[in-house]
Simulated scan of single mutants.
Amino acid sequence: MGVPLIVFFFIIGITSVLLAWKKKAELLPPTLQTSVEDGSWILPAQMIQIGEGEMRKMGRDPEVDRIDIRPDKGVAKVTFKTHFTEVQLDGLSGEVLSIETRHSDWIEKVHDGSIVDFYLGGDEATKLTYSTLTAMGLILMSLSGFYLWYYPKLIRKIKGR
């Protein structure tokens, strides 16, 4: 049973390392910093409009997933539902600071198995199946590993060696 599951364990292991090191390995676009001033930020609706406009210029799907607002850096990050692009905006002026790919987002989806659902439009069934099989495999391997370690000790103790 462990041989087929090794593929899943390998994927989870590699993506775990990448996610742990995502900032050091620059898999996440660096958060730029603008002047943090007292003033009125542009509205989230305006941030969405700017992000959608940038995606239309690039010929990409403009459907926004979320906005990550970083008040301490004066920046807002607009991300999208159907691709891994991020548009960073100056929170005060709405100026586009950068447009980059968020590598950590697709790596996370590979890690938890939801990449298949992402591309096929599934309802997380693949993610749940992948995660469940992998978790059950790890549990089984842990229990069998303990058994293989402990049982010989128990037999030697019973035989009096």
Rank of each mutant, 00 (worst) to 15 (best):
M47A: 05
V75F: 11
R70C: 04
K81I: 09
L154F: 01
M136G: 03
T132G: 11
P30K: 14
L27W: 08
T15R: 12
G74F: 03
D72F: 09
G160I: 01
I11E: 11
E52P: 00
H83W: 06
I11F: 12
S93D: 04
F10R: 11
E95K: 15
T79H: 06
D68N: 13
I69G: 04
T132C: 12
Y147W: 03
I139Y: 04
M1A: 05
E37R: 11
T129H: 02
I42V: 10
G2L: 06
I50R: 05
A125F: 09
L138F: 07
I42M: 02
E52T: 01
F8M: 15
L43R: 13
S131Y: 07
K77V: 07
P30W: 09
L120E: 11
G53N: 07
K73L: 05
P4Y: 00
R156D: 01
G160W: 12
W149M: 04
S16L: 15
M141G: 01
R161S: 04
F80L: 10
K153W: 00
I67W: 07
L19F: 10
F8D: 02
S104A: 08
I107M: 05
A25C: 07
R161Y: 11
F10M: 15
R70K: 05
L133M: 13
I11C: 10
T134M: 06
A25E: 11
G59I: 07
M58P: 06
D123N: 15
Y147P: 03
D112I: 12
G122V: 01
M136K: 02
S104V: 08
S144T: 04
I158L: 10
S144K: 07
G145P: 08
F9L: 12
V96S: 08
M55E: 03
S40M: 10
E124M: 04
D123T: 13
I155M: 01
R161T: 05
W21F: 12
F8N: 12
L19Q: 11
D90P: 04
K157Q: 08
I6P: 00
L128D: 11
V17R: 13
I158W: 09
S40L: 04
G13H: 14
G113T: 13
D72M: 08
G91K: 15
S142T: 08
S114L: 12
G59V: 04
L5K: 11
F9W: 14
A20L: 07
P4A: 00
R60Y: 06
H111C: 05
D61M: 07
L140Y: 02
E52M: 10
K57V: 10
I12P: 01
D90M: 11
W106V: 03
G13A: 15
F10D: 08
L89W: 11
F10P: 00
K77D: 01
R60H: 03
L138A: 00
P44D: 03
I158S: 01
L89D: 02
V64W: 05
S114Q: 14
K157G: 03
L138N: 02
K22R: 06
E124Y: 08
S131W: 07
R156H: 06
M1T: 02
G160F: 10
I50A: 06
T101V: 15
G121C: 04
D112Y: 14
V87R: 12
M58K: 07
E54H: 05
G74A: 00
T82V: 13
G137A: 00
S93P: 01
K159D: 07
P4L: 02
L120F: 12
V3H: 02
K24Q: 10
